[in-house]
Design a protein around this nucleic acid. Structure first.
Lengths: 132, 132
DNA sequence: CGGAATCCAAAAAGATACTG
DNA sequence: CAGTATCTTTTTGGATTCCG
């Protein structure tokens, strides 16, 4: 299992000593690739495992498998194995996962705005007008 | 420095190859205690270093110092050293940090709702009505 | 193809101690 | 008080392998 934040949250939940709602939310998608997976599944629909691998070329096979497993455990993602000669598994968001999309979208919007600011500053640096 | 997500984002930004706004946002507060710090600073105003230590008793001195340093580097938090016989430093959110509060508040709301659901299920388990 | 196990390298975190 | 450095332990991640 991965991610200390998620670990801590799960442990606290089990012990009934939990008191920080925003950490619970963060633990849902703070793993290295989870937010991308949720985003893609939320905006494009279902994906097969191997499709997710193509979408996230910098993530290892192991990471994708681990994160998907956690997302399923957390009730964010559904797993759909298909019968056949070769095992094929597709994934989709659960209603709970879908309920995270507004948060991720607002994060996207914030990040986009911030990115533009940073790029503008970068141009200014390039012109030698100011320093970092 | 800490947090691989943040590292990756910074690196990508430097190389000009950046293309994922939501990861940028996530990198702002995905460190282990950052979201709590931002939340407290946002809702309560300024805090001294030693006050943050009291607010986050499970976070080590080192962690708090590191995360604050990163938050300052990222433009989320301002550092206010006070002159005196003993060094005293207070911290506050920058406008940029304040602009993150709506996202954190929506995370809080989501987590609160989810927490209630989980607790309800927990009660049911305790009564032996169903299984995990 | 999807998933789990293994081994190994890299990263993060705790403890401690030192400085201004 | 705040910040940094060092050392050690724990976690995490990549690569590879094996199995259904």
């Amino acid at each position: 299992m991965t991610d200390l934040v998620r670990e801590t949250v799960i442990e606290k939940l089990r012990d009934g000593e939990y008191n920080c709602p925003k950490e619970l939310t963060l633990s849902m998608f703070s793993g290295k690739w989870k937010i991308n997976m949720i985003y893609h599944l939320g905006h494009d629909g279902n994906y097969y495992f191997y499709e997710l691998q193509k979408l996230l070329p910098r993530a290892s096979h192991k990471e994708i498998a681990e994160k998907l497993k956690e997302l399923v455990e957390d009730g964010i993602v559904d797993r759909h194995p298909e019968a056949g000669p070769r095992l094929k598994v597709s994934y989709s968001l659960t209603p709970l996962g879908i309920s995270l999309l507004p948060i991720i979208d607002s994060m996207y919007a914030w990040g986009e705005k911030r990115l533009k600011e940073l790029q503008l500053r970068h141009v200014v640096f390039g012109l030698g007008e100011t320093k970092d």
